[in-house]
C-alpha cells in the first residue's frame, strides 16, 4: 500500500463521509483500491527483479559486494540472482565486453524472457572506459538497448543500488526501453 504509483491512481472513493465502515480498514484508509492493470503489474515487476549478472571483469567483484550481506540488495527486492537467462528479467552487464564476448552477450539478452531490462554497470560497459582499443566494445549499446548506465570504475555498490532504484522508478513510469517499444507498437495500432 506504500506504493506511490498505485496510490496516485486511487479515486476519491471513501472520502464522501457516508460512513460505510465496511469499505474501510481499521485505521480509516480505504479497503478497496482501483487502479489500471498495467500499473499494478508494473508495481509487481519492479519490486521483484531477478538479475542475471553478466559479470566479466572487476565490476563483477563489486557486484558480489552488492549481493552480499553488507550492502544487501534484497532490501530492494532484487536479490534472486539467476544465471539462466530464461529465469531472469534484469541483465546487469558488469565489466568490459570485448568483441569476442559481444555475440555471447547478445545471445544471452535474446534468450531472456520479456519484459527485460538492462543495467550497464561501470564505464567499460557504458562506453569502453579507458580501453580505447582494438578488442573492446565501445559501449554495449552498440549491441543491446540499455536502460540505466551506472558510471564508475568500478561503481561502488551504493551506486549500483541507486541504479536499481532508478530502474524501478523507470518501470513504474513506463520509461524503460522495453516499455517504450511496446507503447510505440500499441500506438501504431499493431
Amino acid at each position: 500500500m506504500g506504493n506511490p504509483d498505485v496510490k496516485s491512481t486511487l479515486p476519491t472513493f471513501g472520502k464522501t463521509g457516508r460512513g460505510d465502515s465496511a469499505s474501510r480498514q481499521l485505521d480509516g484508509s480505504p479497503a478497496i483500491l482501483t487502479t489500471r492493470l498495467d500499473a499494478m503489474i508494473d508495481a509487481a515487476r519492479k519490486n521483484s527483479l531477478w538479475p542475471l549478472p553478466f559479470g566479466t571483469a572487476c565490476c563483477a567483484i563489486e557486484f558480489m559486494s552488492f549481493i552480499m550481506s553488507h550492502y544487501d540488495v534484497s532490501r530492494f527486492g532484487a536479490e534472486v540472482v539467476r544465471f539462466s537467462p530464461r529465469q531472469s528479467d534484469l541483465l546487469i552487464v558488469a565489466g568490459t565486453i570485448t568483441d569476442k564476448m559481444a555475440p555471447v552477450m547478445v545471445r544471452i539478452y535474446e534468450q531472456m524472457a520479456e519484459p527485460k531490462y538492462v543495467i550497464s554497470m561501470g564505464v567499460c560497459a557504458c562506453t569502453g572506459g579507458f580501453y580505447r582499443a582494438y578488442h573492446v566494445v565501445q559501449g554495449i549499446d552498440e549491441f543491446i538497448p540499455v536502460d540505466v548506465y551506472v558510471p564508475g570504475c568500478p561503481p561502488t555498490p551504493e551506486a549500483l543500488l541507486q541504479g536499481v532504484v532508478k530502474l524501478q522508478e523507470m518501470i513504474a513510469k513506463g520509461e524503460t526501453q522495453y516499455q517504450r517499444v511496446l507503447a510505440a507498437k500499441k500506438a501504431s495500432g499493431a
Binding site: T98, K100, H135, V136
Partner: peptide
C-alpha cells in the same frame, strides 16, 4: 581471450605513471 582488453597495447600509449591504473 573473452576479456582481452589490450593492456599491453594501451600501456605503449600512456606515460609510465599512467600505466598504473591499468
Amino acid at each position: 581471450g573473452y576479456l582481452h582488453r589490450c593492456f599491453e597495447k594501451m600501456a605503449e600509449s600512456h606515460t609510465w605513471n599512467q600505466v598504473i591504473p591499468y
